[in-house]
């Protein structure tokens, strides 16, 4: 059975999209068929990491939500971005980056139920092993819905006080929605922090396992979403942490 996995962070700037893209890349490199859906309709961004811009998008998630196309038609094969000899396949369903189309979604609203139907349809038609949902930060009905239908939820936070507060809310909600697997990831940990201390503090705060504490990475910042980190730096400690998360997903 394929797995639907939501990636969420309560606040922005946690590196959610970069983490999603890199986890998906590693899964595809391991030979799996993987899909990513960008449900951050109000500020799409993950397509950039795969080197896409407006002109590369035949169809977007928005077109599907308006009934202009099948969800499958909005899937773009981005396997080529992972380098040579990739056994698996990676698809991205981007959100539109036309200001007018974003404004239109705001004005007209859309059928959230279509999203879930679309996710399940994608899994079937593209024969996916994993579908990763890059959610909108914070909480709204769409995010709750993504969580509700996921077999696993990856929660990404930074170790700062606002994130602690907000993440507690997300954890509480995930528990109420009976999400079967909750994977906590601490990202962008400042150099001055002891990684193990951070892990302990987070585990204590939320009473759940922390899968990975990722140190702040200057390489990642300099890369600035222009490429996939795991492709460029296969032996970096950050890539090793991504691997640990991927192993957890596969388990």
């Amino acid at each position: 059975m394929s797995k639907i996995i939501s990636i969420h962070s309560f606040r922005g700037g946690t590196g959610k999209s970069n983490t999603t893209a890199n986890l998906a890349a590693l899964l595809a490199m391991d030979g799996f068929r993987v899909g990513i859906v960008d449900t951050d309709i109000q500020s799409p961004g993950i397509h950039v990491i795969f080197g896409m811009d407006d002109s590369d998008m035949k169809h977007s998630l928005n077109d599907y939500l308006w009934g202009k196309c099948d969800i499958k038609d909005a899937a773009h094969d981005v396997t080529g971005k992972l380098g040579a000899d990739v056994k698996g396949q990676l698809f991205l369903i981007p959100s539109s980056i036309k200001a007018g189309e974003i404004a239109r979604i705001l004005r007209e609203g859309y059928d959230v139920g279509l999203l879930t139907d679309g996710f399940r349809d994608l899994v079937d038609k593209l024969e996916l092993d994993y579908l990763l949902i890059d959610t909108h930060p914070g909480l709204n009905e769409e995010t709750l819905l993504s969580m509700a239908i996921s077999q696993a939820l990856i929660i990404i936070m930074r170790p700062d006080s606002q994130d602690y507060q907000g993440t507690a809310v997300t954890v509480d909600i995930a528990r109420k929605l009976d999400v079967p697997n909750m994977l906590m990831v601490v990202n962008k940990t400042p150099q001055a922090f002891e990684l193990e201390d951070v892990r302990e503090r987070v585990e204590k705060s939320f009473n759940c396992e922390v899968v990975s504490v990722i140190p702040h990475s200057e390489e990642m910042m300099v890369l600035a979403s222009s490429e996939l980190f795991v492709v460029r730096y296969p032996d970096d400690p950050v890539t090793k942490e991504f691997r640990i998360i991927v192993d957890k997903i596969k388990a």
């Binding site: 999209s17 109000q42 500020s43 961004g45 979403s225 222009s226």
Partner: peptide
């Protein structure tokens, strides 16, 4: 952040719009 109902409105009433960005490809397009 992003394009939302309140940003359309708060932008429309602004005398000055201050856009804060990082040097990140995702920010560039946005």
């Amino acid at each position: 952040s992003g394009i939302t109902e309140d940003i359309l409105l708060t932008m429309a009433v602004a005398d000055i719009l201050m856009v804060v960005m990082r040097l990140d490809e995702q920010d560039y397009q946005g």
